[in-house]
Protein backbone atom coordinates (compact mmCIF):
# COMPACT_ATOMS: atom_id res chain seq x y z
CA UNK A 1 0.00 0.00 0.00
CA UNK A 2 2.70 2.52 -0.84
CA UNK A 3 4.01 3.94 -4.05
CA UNK A 4 2.25 1.42 -6.23
CA UNK A 5 -1.14 2.16 -4.68
CA UNK A 6 -0.70 5.92 -5.14
CA UNK A 7 0.46 5.46 -8.73
CA UNK A 8 -2.12 2.96 -9.87
CA UNK A 9 -5.16 3.05 -7.63
CA UNK A 10 -5.43 6.42 -5.89
CA UNK A 11 -6.49 8.43 -8.94
CA UNK A 12 -9.13 5.99 -10.24
CA UNK A 13 -10.60 5.84 -6.74
CA UNK A 14 -10.53 9.60 -6.27
CA UNK A 15 -12.04 10.17 -9.70
CA UNK A 16 -14.65 7.51 -9.03
CA UNK A 17 -15.61 9.20 -5.75
CA UNK A 18 -15.81 12.68 -7.34
CA UNK A 19 -17.92 11.37 -10.23
CA UNK A 20 -20.20 9.39 -7.94
CA UNK A 21 -20.89 12.32 -5.62
CA UNK A 22 -21.33 14.80 -8.48
CA UNK A 23 -24.02 12.52 -9.94
CA UNK A 24 -25.68 11.53 -6.66
CA UNK A 25 -26.32 15.13 -5.52
CA UNK A 26 -28.65 16.17 -8.37
CA UNK A 27 -29.86 12.56 -8.49
CA UNK A 28 -31.70 13.13 -5.18
CA UNK A 29 -33.89 15.79 -6.71
CA UNK A 30 -34.34 13.94 -10.01
CA UNK A 31 -35.52 10.91 -8.07
CA UNK A 32 -38.03 12.90 -6.00
CA UNK A 33 -39.30 14.60 -9.18
CA UNK A 34 -39.75 11.16 -10.75
CA UNK A 35 -37.26 12.18 -13.42
CA UNK A 36 -34.55 9.68 -12.55
CA UNK A 37 -34.53 8.43 -16.11
CA UNK A 38 -33.30 11.78 -17.37
CA UNK A 39 -29.83 10.97 -16.03
CA UNK A 40 -29.94 7.77 -18.04
CA UNK A 41 -31.09 9.66 -21.13
CA UNK A 42 -28.40 12.30 -20.83
CA UNK A 43 -25.58 9.84 -20.28
CA UNK A 44 -26.54 7.99 -23.45
CA UNK A 45 -26.80 11.04 -25.69
CA UNK A 46 -23.34 12.10 -24.61
CA UNK A 47 -21.88 9.52 -27.02
CA UNK A 48 -23.07 11.12 -30.30
CA UNK A 49 -22.03 14.49 -28.87
CA UNK A 50 -18.51 13.26 -28.27
CA UNK A 51 -18.28 11.67 -31.71
CA UNK A 52 -19.50 14.84 -33.42
CA UNK A 53 -17.09 16.87 -31.29
CA UNK A 54 -14.29 14.65 -32.54
CA UNK A 55 -15.41 14.76 -36.18
CA UNK A 56 -15.68 18.55 -36.17
CA UNK A 57 -12.36 19.25 -34.50
CA UNK A 58 -10.43 16.14 -35.37
CA UNK A 59 -8.97 16.18 -31.92
CA UNK A 60 -9.47 13.88 -28.98
CA UNK A 61 -8.62 16.45 -26.36
CA UNK A 62 -11.17 16.76 -23.63
CA UNK A 63 -12.70 20.17 -24.27
CA UNK A 64 -14.11 19.79 -27.82
CA UNK A 65 -15.60 16.47 -26.79
CA UNK A 66 -17.09 17.86 -23.62
CA UNK A 67 -18.58 20.79 -25.46
CA UNK A 68 -20.03 18.39 -28.04
CA UNK A 69 -21.41 16.22 -25.26
CA UNK A 70 -22.91 19.16 -23.38
CA UNK A 71 -24.51 20.37 -26.60
CA UNK A 72 -25.98 16.91 -27.24
CA UNK A 73 -27.30 16.79 -23.66
CA UNK A 74 -29.10 20.10 -24.00
CA UNK A 75 -30.39 19.11 -27.44
CA UNK A 76 -31.80 15.88 -26.01
CA UNK A 77 -33.60 17.74 -23.23
CA UNK A 78 -35.14 20.11 -25.77
CA UNK A 79 -36.14 17.17 -27.99
CA UNK A 80 -37.69 15.32 -25.05
CA UNK A 81 -39.75 18.37 -24.11
CA UNK A 82 -40.77 18.92 -27.74
CA UNK A 83 -41.87 15.31 -28.23
CA UNK A 84 -43.73 15.38 -24.93
CA UNK A 85 -45.66 18.51 -25.82
CA UNK A 86 -46.15 18.21 -29.57
CA UNK A 87 -46.73 14.48 -29.62
CA UNK A 88 -48.60 14.45 -26.26
CA UNK A 89 -46.45 11.49 -25.27
CA UNK A 90 -45.75 10.50 -21.69
CA UNK A 91 -42.37 11.67 -20.34
CA UNK A 92 -40.77 8.23 -19.94
CA UNK A 93 -41.61 7.26 -23.50
CA UNK A 94 -40.31 10.55 -24.88
CA UNK A 95 -37.02 10.07 -23.03
CA UNK A 96 -36.77 6.48 -24.24
CA UNK A 97 -37.27 7.49 -27.86
CA UNK A 98 -34.75 10.31 -27.72
CA UNK A 99 -31.92 8.62 -25.89
CA UNK A 100 -32.02 5.31 -27.71
CA UNK A 101 -32.12 6.92 -31.15
CA UNK A 102 -29.39 9.43 -30.31
CA UNK A 103 -27.21 6.72 -28.78
CA UNK A 104 -27.77 4.51 -31.84
CA UNK A 105 -26.93 7.46 -34.07
CA UNK A 106 -23.73 7.87 -32.11
CA UNK A 107 -22.80 4.22 -32.62
CA UNK A 108 -23.39 4.47 -36.37
CA UNK A 109 -21.37 7.67 -36.58
CA UNK A 110 -18.59 6.07 -34.63
CA UNK A 111 -18.40 3.08 -36.96
CA UNK A 112 -18.63 5.14 -40.12
CA UNK A 113 -15.99 7.63 -39.13
CA UNK A 114 -12.30 7.02 -38.94
CA UNK A 115 -11.96 6.85 -35.21
CA UNK A 116 -10.26 3.48 -35.17
CA UNK A 117 -6.90 5.11 -34.61
CA UNK A 118 -8.06 6.87 -31.47
CA UNK A 119 -9.27 5.57 -28.20
CA UNK A 120 -12.98 6.03 -28.81
CA UNK A 121 -15.30 3.07 -28.97
CA UNK A 122 -18.62 1.89 -27.63
CA UNK A 123 -17.11 -0.16 -24.84
CA UNK A 124 -15.13 2.85 -23.69
CA UNK A 125 -18.36 4.84 -23.70
CA UNK A 126 -20.13 2.29 -21.52
CA UNK A 127 -17.44 1.26 -19.05
CA UNK A 128 -15.03 4.15 -19.28
CA UNK A 129 -11.47 3.21 -18.63
CA UNK A 130 -10.78 3.93 -15.02
CA UNK A 131 -7.80 1.60 -14.87
CA UNK A 132 -5.92 3.85 -17.30
CA UNK A 133 -6.17 6.86 -14.98
CA UNK A 134 -2.79 6.24 -13.47
CA UNK A 135 -0.48 8.79 -11.87
CA UNK A 136 3.02 7.75 -12.79
CA UNK A 137 4.59 10.98 -11.63
CA UNK A 138 3.76 10.06 -8.06
CA UNK A 139 6.34 8.28 -5.97
CA UNK A 140 4.35 7.81 -2.78
CA UNK A 141 1.89 9.61 -0.53
CA UNK A 142 4.25 12.58 -0.37
CA UNK A 143 3.40 13.41 -3.98
CA UNK A 144 0.06 14.74 -2.81
CA UNK A 145 1.88 17.83 -1.58
CA UNK A 146 4.39 17.93 -4.42
CA UNK A 147 3.29 20.52 -6.97
CA UNK A 148 5.36 19.06 -9.80
CA UNK A 149 3.79 15.64 -9.33
CA UNK A 150 0.31 17.07 -8.84
CA UNK A 151 0.50 18.80 -12.22
CA UNK A 152 0.95 15.39 -13.82
CA UNK A 153 -2.17 13.84 -12.34
CA UNK A 154 -4.88 12.74 -14.79
CA UNK A 155 -6.78 15.85 -15.90
CA UNK A 156 -10.10 14.17 -15.09
CA UNK A 157 -9.47 14.63 -11.39
CA UNK A 158 -9.27 18.44 -11.24
CA UNK A 159 -12.02 18.72 -13.87
CA UNK A 160 -14.39 16.55 -11.86
CA UNK A 161 -13.46 18.43 -8.69
CA UNK A 162 -14.52 21.69 -10.35
CA UNK A 163 -17.74 20.13 -11.58
CA UNK A 164 -18.50 18.74 -8.13
CA UNK A 165 -18.04 22.18 -6.57
CA UNK A 166 -20.37 23.64 -9.20
CA UNK A 167 -23.03 20.97 -8.66
CA UNK A 168 -22.83 21.32 -4.88
CA UNK A 169 -23.01 25.11 -5.11
CA UNK A 170 -26.15 24.88 -7.23
CA UNK A 171 -27.88 22.39 -4.94
CA UNK A 172 -27.08 24.23 -1.72
CA UNK A 173 -27.65 27.75 -3.03
CA UNK A 174 -31.11 26.89 -4.28
CA UNK A 175 -31.88 24.32 -1.59
CA UNK A 176 -35.14 25.91 -0.43
CA UNK A 177 -36.29 26.67 -3.95
CA UNK A 178 -35.47 23.15 -5.17
CA UNK A 179 -37.19 21.61 -2.17
CA UNK A 180 -40.40 23.62 -2.51
CA UNK A 181 -40.65 23.28 -6.27
CA UNK A 182 -39.90 19.57 -6.16
CA UNK A 183 -42.56 18.93 -3.53
CA UNK A 184 -45.25 21.24 -4.90
CA UNK A 185 -44.56 22.99 -8.18
CA UNK A 186 -47.87 24.87 -8.31
CA UNK A 187 -47.35 26.28 -4.83
CA UNK A 188 -43.74 27.23 -5.67
CA UNK A 189 -44.97 29.18 -8.69
CA UNK A 190 -47.60 30.90 -6.53
CA UNK A 191 -44.77 32.11 -4.26
CA UNK A 192 -42.96 33.55 -7.26
CA UNK A 193 -40.26 30.87 -7.38
CA UNK A 194 -39.39 30.33 -11.06
CA UNK A 195 -39.94 26.60 -10.69
CA UNK A 196 -39.86 25.81 -14.40
CA UNK A 197 -36.54 27.58 -14.95
CA UNK A 198 -35.20 25.89 -11.84
CA UNK A 199 -36.27 22.49 -13.18
CA UNK A 200 -34.43 23.22 -16.42
CA UNK A 201 -31.36 24.40 -14.50
CA UNK A 202 -31.39 21.13 -12.55
CA UNK A 203 -31.34 19.21 -15.82
CA UNK A 204 -28.47 21.35 -17.15
CA UNK A 205 -26.49 20.75 -13.95
CA UNK A 206 -27.27 17.04 -14.31
CA UNK A 207 -25.95 17.18 -17.87
CA UNK A 208 -22.73 18.86 -16.77
CA UNK A 209 -22.19 16.22 -14.10
CA UNK A 210 -23.00 13.43 -16.55
CA UNK A 211 -20.66 14.74 -19.23
CA UNK A 212 -17.73 15.24 -16.88
CA UNK A 213 -18.23 11.88 -15.19
CA UNK A 214 -18.82 10.05 -18.47
CA UNK A 215 -15.47 11.15 -19.81
CA UNK A 216 -13.71 9.62 -16.82
CA UNK A 217 -15.75 6.63 -15.83
CA UNK A 218 -18.24 5.76 -18.61
CA UNK A 219 -22.01 5.83 -18.70
CA UNK A 220 -22.70 2.74 -16.58
CA UNK A 221 -21.46 4.47 -13.44
CA UNK A 222 -23.18 7.70 -14.35
CA UNK A 223 -26.55 6.02 -14.67
CA UNK A 224 -26.06 3.98 -11.51
CA UNK A 225 -24.92 6.98 -9.46
CA UNK A 226 -27.84 9.19 -10.48
CA UNK A 227 -30.28 6.61 -9.18
CA UNK A 228 -28.87 4.04 -6.75
CA UNK A 229 -27.38 6.16 -3.92
CA UNK A 230 -30.35 8.57 -3.74
CA UNK A 231 -32.86 5.72 -3.95
CA UNK A 232 -31.08 3.81 -1.17
CA UNK A 233 -30.77 7.03 0.87
CA UNK A 234 -34.51 7.68 0.58
CA UNK A 235 -35.10 4.36 2.35
CA UNK A 236 -32.91 5.44 5.28
CA UNK A 237 -34.64 8.66 6.35
CA UNK A 238 -37.65 10.96 6.03
CA UNK A 239 -35.58 14.14 6.08
CA UNK A 240 -34.28 15.65 2.86
CA UNK A 241 -30.99 16.88 4.37
CA UNK A 242 -30.29 13.48 5.87
CA UNK A 243 -31.27 11.79 2.62
CA UNK A 244 -28.75 13.86 0.65
CA UNK A 245 -26.06 13.12 3.27
CA UNK A 246 -26.75 9.38 3.07
CA UNK A 247 -26.66 9.50 -0.72
CA UNK A 248 -23.22 11.11 -0.64
CA UNK A 249 -22.06 8.46 1.81
CA UNK A 250 -23.43 5.65 -0.36
CA UNK A 251 -21.83 7.17 -3.47
CA UNK A 252 -18.41 7.32 -1.79
CA UNK A 253 -18.81 3.80 -0.42
CA UNK A 254 -19.81 2.43 -3.84
CA UNK A 255 -16.84 4.07 -5.54
CA UNK A 256 -14.24 2.94 -3.00
CA UNK A 257 -15.60 -0.52 -2.32
CA UNK A 258 -16.48 -1.16 -5.98
CA UNK A 259 -13.02 -0.20 -7.13
CA UNK A 260 -11.27 -2.31 -4.51
CA UNK A 261 -13.48 -5.33 -5.12
CA UNK A 262 -13.05 -5.11 -8.89
CA UNK A 263 -9.32 -4.63 -8.59
CA UNK A 264 -8.44 -7.06 -5.82
CA UNK A 265 -11.51 -9.25 -5.29
CA UNK A 266 -11.01 -11.60 -8.25
CA UNK A 267 -7.32 -11.97 -7.42
CA UNK A 268 -8.12 -12.89 -3.84
CA UNK A 269 -10.69 -15.37 -5.12
CA UNK A 270 -8.03 -17.08 -7.19
CA UNK A 271 -8.76 -15.67 -10.65
CA UNK A 272 -5.89 -14.08 -12.47
CA UNK A 273 -7.61 -10.96 -13.91
CA UNK A 274 -9.17 -7.98 -12.25
CA UNK A 275 -12.64 -7.02 -13.54
CA UNK A 276 -13.90 -3.66 -14.81
CA UNK A 277 -13.80 -1.08 -12.02
CA UNK A 278 -16.82 0.74 -13.49
CA UNK A 279 -18.78 -2.49 -13.43
CA UNK A 280 -17.66 -3.13 -9.86
CA UNK A 281 -18.73 0.31 -8.67
CA UNK A 282 -22.13 0.12 -10.37
CA UNK A 283 -22.68 -3.36 -8.97
CA UNK A 284 -21.84 -2.29 -5.42
CA UNK A 285 -24.24 0.66 -5.69
CA UNK A 286 -26.94 -1.77 -6.78
CA UNK A 287 -26.18 -4.08 -3.86
CA UNK A 288 -26.37 -1.14 -1.45
CA UNK A 289 -29.80 -0.29 -2.86
CA UNK A 290 -30.88 -3.90 -2.48
CA UNK A 291 -29.68 -3.92 1.13
CA UNK A 292 -31.53 -0.67 1.83
CA UNK A 293 -34.69 -2.20 0.34
CA UNK A 294 -34.38 -5.14 2.72
CA UNK A 295 -33.37 -3.38 5.93
CA UNK A 296 -33.76 0.39 5.38
CA UNK A 297 -35.82 1.85 8.25
CA UNK A 298 -38.12 3.89 6.02
CA UNK A 299 -38.95 1.32 3.40
CA UNK A 300 -42.63 0.87 2.86
CA UNK A 301 -44.90 -1.11 0.70
CA UNK A 302 -45.88 0.91 -2.31
CA UNK A 303 -49.17 0.53 -4.06
CA UNK A 304 -51.02 0.13 -0.78
CA UNK A 305 -54.22 2.14 -0.90
CA UNK A 306 -54.20 4.59 1.94
CA UNK A 307 -57.32 5.81 3.66
CA UNK A 308 -58.29 9.18 2.22
Amino acid sequence: MGTEFVQLSLMPMLIGVLAAVACALPGNFLLLRRQALIGDAISHVVLPGIVVGFLVTGSITAWPMMIGAAFAAVLSVVLIEAIKRLGRIEAGAAMGVVFTSMFAGGVVLLEQSDTSSVHLDVEHALYGNMESLIWLAADGWGSLIDWAALREMPSQAPRLAVVLVLVAAFVFTFWKELKISTFDEGYALSLGIPALALGFALVVVTAIAAVAAFDAVGSIIVIAMFICPPAAARLMTDDLWVQVAWSVGFAVLSAVLGYLLAGYGPLLAGFDHAVSAAGGIATVSGLILAAACLVGPKRKRVGVVREG
Partner: peptide
Protein backbone atom coordinates in the same frame (compact mmCIF):
# COMPACT_ATOMS: atom_id res chain seq x y z
CA UNK B 1 -51.57 17.33 -6.52
CA UNK B 2 -48.43 16.48 -4.54
CA UNK B 3 -46.53 13.33 -3.62
CA UNK B 4 -46.99 12.89 0.12
CA UNK B 5 -44.10 10.40 0.23
CA UNK B 6 -41.73 13.36 -0.12
CA UNK B 7 -39.10 13.29 2.66
CA UNK B 8 -40.42 16.09 4.84
CA UNK B 9 -42.03 16.52 8.22
CA UNK B 10 -45.20 18.47 8.87
CA UNK B 11 -43.24 21.45 10.22
CA UNK B 12 -41.04 21.53 7.08
CA UNK B 13 -44.09 21.86 4.86
CA UNK B 14 -45.59 24.66 6.98
CA UNK B 15 -42.28 26.55 6.95
CA UNK B 16 -42.45 26.61 3.14
CA UNK B 17 -45.10 29.29 3.70
CA UNK B 18 -42.40 31.54 5.20
CA UNK B 19 -40.24 31.28 2.10
Amino acid sequence: SVDWDFPARVIDVVMMGLY
